[in-house]
Computed example of a mutant assay.
Amino acid sequence: MSRLPRLTDVFILALAGCAASALAQDDPALRVSGYYKNLLLRSETWTGERYELDLNRLRLELKGKLSPAMSFNVQYDNEALIGSYLRTAQFQQQKDLPSSQYWSAQGSYVDRPALYGVHRLYRAQFQLAFGDTDLRLGRQRIAWGTGRFWSPLDLLNPVSPTTLEREERPGVDAVLLEHRFGPVARVAAVYAPSRLAGEDSHALQWHDHARGIDFSVTAGRFHGDRVIGLDLAGQIGLAGVRAEMTRVRPRNGEAFNRTLFGIDYAFANTLTLSAEFYRDGSGAGSPVAYNFSALASGSRQTLAQRYLGVRAGYALTPLVKLSTDVVLNLADHSRYVAPGISYSIQTNLDLSFGLQWFSGATGSEYARLPSVAYVTLQQFF
């Protein structure tokens, strides 16, 4: 059993003082919100152990303004895990893995065969505004890139296209400085330290709009790799089109390209469609060269070079919505299909059912991933 590091305790106490200061103002700009989520799922481990998991998460968010120039945002998670998954070898290995973030602001408070409790800081950022310049410090979401399934430019907060909770994007501990030159044009500089020597990230991005196209140019070093990239987004008729292109020069090995092309369309009958083609020059040329351990550890989001992703959504009624994600590995023809249905029981209370189904030939990328059936109940406040 462990607890949050002392630095985290100090940070929480400092924020409590900030909240008290905000509340003491005549017109306090302080907001408390969050959600409770219950996620019940059935699946199996990579080695074939069948299990059930009941995850209960309470997220509390505190946002406040200390002055017109100073604000903060803190999101604290407390999770309780129940089920046979706690008795699998996979969980015993995963629970002790160090955090990928620079600041290890998490710890377990219960570690038993029938119950595992963990708490963490999901977000913790402090912002200073000086006219058209903003400075953000701490754990934050830095969303560079426009990809839905993949993003060659979203290198600080990468996520796998097959992640169950895709809306959960772990933040990065970083310093972000942005200066606006108008309604759209801005320049941003980021620095994100790493615990590993030589893997600090620092980059510049210029964002602007011209001839109906939003574009961004990014250059810097991400986790030790030198990257230069371009991001484009615009319209062709009623369809939205997107593209991302990066040139990556790793510390070891040859340089390679990553490209993404996407299109989005919304029909009048509430049907929405998105499609993306993704090519990763660092991927394996054939299934015999796949590095499945890198996929399991999260150091890679994909294994091959060419993929196609499709997302469809449809509102049966204002309260009932259907969605489906499909990802195809175009090299080995393995597939990932994730249909789901959500129902808004009442204001701020949602119920969802879904399935993650993986299939393919023996040795293909998605054939080895275990399928998942789940149900979630989420109450916002």
Rank of each mutant, 00 (worst) to 15 (best):
G171C: 04
H223M: 09
R148T: 11
P170D: 13
P193Q: 13
L204G: 14
E167R: 12
T162W: 07
R169H: 13
E199A: 08
D154F: 02
T163D: 06
A174H: 03
H223N: 09
H209G: 13
R211C: 13
W150M: 00
G182H: 10
D208Q: 08
H179Y: 01
A185H: 08
S151W: 00
W144L: 12
W206T: 04
R169C: 02
A188C: 02
W150L: 00
A197L: 14
L164I: 07
F149H: 02
E199F: 05
T162N: 10
R195T: 14
P193W: 10
E165R: 05
A203S: 14
L153G: 00
D173N: 08
G229P: 10
A185V: 07
R166H: 12
W144Y: 06
P158I: 05
R169P: 01
L230Y: 04
V190S: 08
Q235A: 15
T163I: 09
S216F: 01
R169N: 08
V184R: 15
F149G: 01
L177I: 13
D208T: 04
S160G: 11
L153P: 01
R211G: 06
P152F: 02
P193V: 13
G171P: 05
A197H: 13
T162F: 06
R141E: 13
D214T: 11
E199S: 11
T163C: 01
P158T: 05
G147T: 00
T146W: 03
A210H: 14
Q235H: 14
P152E: 04
D173P: 12
L155Y: 04
G212C: 10
A174K: 03
R195Y: 06
R211V: 13
A174E: 03
V187Q: 10
F149L: 03
G212A: 10
R148E: 08
L177P: 10
R141C: 07
S151R: 00
H207I: 14
